[in-house]
Structures are given as structure tokens and as C-alpha cells.
């Protein structure tokens, strides 16, 4: 029982980080129908920003966590904005697949550029302690192991998700985003500035990934190399598809399913933990071809 609960809790922790990355994938996909492969590398940049900014922030503000996460979100948001302007905008009205190949190119570029000796270097780095890790005693003798890092991961991602739901559902730009995602030409005829909406999606999504990067660094305590974004990014992307890509609650649901199943499978075998995500995805897509919460749109004649 204790073991079961422990894996469930671990899964929720991983799921929270996946959810923050998956939201960026799903927002960008919903609006421009592009699988933004470079999103995983923006997550990586966010994590490295934590490494470089935390000592500075600790000196300036006294505390490190909140200023670092805000600064990282601002920087990754800016990076997303620049990326869209330079690489994706020229291709917007051309074939979707060329945009996809461009996304792959941007991803390769970010990884290899960040591995240059005067940027982040390919070396292993220890992530600074943004908060002091402490175990929280749980009454009863289930043998549960809950740290304040776990609560922080879940708390921060839930706060950011609530903010995102508010942003998408209540603000004017959020409503415009939903309109553009629903029908781009009509939204444009209604006087919505498509450029602004797309730029916003490319700022908000990467900013969330940046926050995810900080949480990732805090949780695992290390940054392996500038290529570290590939696998968490892929998992988050799979989570977004699982929930129905383009659907924001779907991405969160998918991320938690992914995180929990991964935690359970990893406790059996680490390779199985890696592969389970794909098996679940294939299984679900064969039953529900548009993901769990996605709408199925039959092709019209």
C-alpha cells in the first residue's frame, strides 16, 4: 500500500513537469497546427537559465526560487517570440511539413549552439539548490517519502495552470486565441490580429516550458547536457497527443497519465518505464483516434 501510494505521488510529481511542457506543445499546435520540436530545447534553456541566474538572484533578492523562475520564464518567452519571428513566420502560409522540418532545424540549432564552449558547454552541471530539500514526515507507518521539492513542483505547476486557464478563458487575448484555434480565416475576418495571437502563443507556451525547466533542475539536482530536453520533451509531447492535441485540459490530463504510468512501470524496470508511454499512446489512439479529450472531425466531401 505504501509502495503504491509512493509511486502514485512520484508519478504526480513527474506529471506536473510534463504538464508544463505539454501545455506549450498543445497551445502552439492548436493555433498554428505545428509540432514545435524546438519546444523541448526551450525547456532545456529554461533549466540552464536556472543554473546561471540562481546565484545572481540569490545575491540580489535574498531568496532564489521565485525571482529565478520568473526570470527564466521571461527569457524563454522572449526566445519563443524570436524563434517564431525568424524561423516560423516566413513559412506560415507555405506547406505545414516545411514548417515541421524547420522546427527540427531550430531544435538542432538550439541544442548544438548551447553546447558551444562559450555558451552552456556540453559538460555535466550540478543544479544549484533553489530551496533546501527537506522530507516532510507523514503520520502513520506507510513509509511514504514526501519532500518539500515535490510539493513545490506540484504547487507551482498547479498555480501556473490555473493562471493559464484564467488567461485563455477570461482575458480578451485568450478569447482571441480560442477563436483563432477554432477557425483562423473567420477569426481574422472578425478583426482579430492573427500575428499578435500567434506571437502570444509562442510567448506563453515557452514561458511555461521555462518554468518546467526550473522545476526539472530542482527535482533532479543536475543538468546532464544541452541535449537533456529531448526525452522529457518527447514524453510531454506524447502526453499532449494522448489528451488530444490542441486541447488544454487534455494536455494536463495526458501529462498526469503519462507521469503516473511511467512511475509505476519504472519501479518494475527502467526500460519498461521508458517504453510504457508509447504503448499507452498507441493503445489509446487506436480506440480514440483524436486523443482522450480531442474532438473527432470527420473529413468533409
Amino acid at each position: 500500500m505504501g509502495q503504491f501510494l509512493q509511486q502514485l505521488i512520484n508519478g504526480i510529481q513527474i506529471g506536473s513537469i510534463y504538464a508544463l511542457i505539454a501545455l506549450g506543445y498543445t497551445m502552439v499546435y492548436g493555433i498554428v497546427r505545428l509540432i514545435n520540436f524546438a519546444h523541448a530545447d526551450i525547456f532545456m534553456v529554461g533549466a540552464y537559465m536556472g543554473f546561471f541566474l540562481a546565484p545572481v538572484m540569490a545575491r540580489v533578492f535574498g531568496g532564489a526560487f521565485i525571482p529565478t523562475i520568473i526570470a527564466a520564464m521571461l527569457i524563454t518567452g522572449l526566445l519563443g517570440f524570436i524563434m517564431e519571428k525568424l524561423a516560423y513566420r516566413p513559412l506560415r502560409y507555405k506547406s505545414r511539413l516545411s514548417a515541421l522540418i524547420t522546427a527540427l532545424g531550430v531544435s538542432l540549432f538550439l541544442e548544438n549552439f548551447c553546447a558551444l564552449p562559450f555558451v552552456f558547454t556540453p559538460a555535466f552541471r550540478k543544479f544549484p539548490d533553489l530551496i533546501v530539500a527537506r522530507n516532510i514526515p507523514i503520520p502513520g507507518n506507510l513509509g511514504l517519502n514526501i519532500s518539500n521539492v515535490l510539493l513545490l513542483d506540484v504547487g507551482v505547476s498547479v498555480i501556473l495552470m490555473v493562471l493559464l486557464f484564467w488567461f485563455v478563458n477570461k482575458t480578451l487575448i485568450g478569447k482571441q486565441m480560442r477563436a483563432v484555434a477554432f477557425d483562423k480565416p473567420t477569426a481574422s475576418l472578425m478583426g482579430i490580429n492573427i500575428d499578435v495571437v500567434i506571437s502570444t502563443a509562442f510567448i506563453v507556451g515557452p514561458a511555461l516550458a521555462g518554468a518546467g525547466g526550473i522545476l526539472y533542475g530542482t527535482t533532479y539536482g543536475m543538468l546532464a547536457s544541452p541535449f537533456l530536453g529531448i526525452w522529457p520533451g518527447l514524453k510531454a509531447f506524447i502526453a499532449a497527443v494522448l489528451g488530444g492535441i490542441g486541447n488544454i485540459p487534455g494536455a494536463v490530463l495526458g501529462a498526469y497519465i503519462m507521469g503516473i504510468s511511467e512511475a509505476f512501470a519504472t519501479s518494475v524496470n527502467s526500460n519498461l518505464g521508458y517504453g510504457i508511454a508509447f504503448a499507452i499512446l498507441i493503445g489509446i489512439l487506436l480506440v480514440r483516434p483524436s486523443g482522450l479529450l480531442g474532438k473527432f472531425m470527420p473529413e468533409k466531401v
Binding site: 524561423a87 514548417a99 524547420t102 532545424g105 531550430v106 538542432l108 540549432f109 548544438n112 549552439f113 558551444l116
Partner: peptide, 13 residues
């Protein structure tokens, strides 16, 4: 490996 993806992106654009 920095210039290679740049060539790729520029080819696509």
C-alpha cells in the same frame, strides 16, 4: 553542427 541546422532552416525558408 550549429551551421548545419541553419543551412537546413534557410533551405526550407
Amino acid at each position: 553542427m550549429v551551421i548545419y541546422p541553419l543551412i537546413l532552416v534557410l533551405t526550407m525558408i
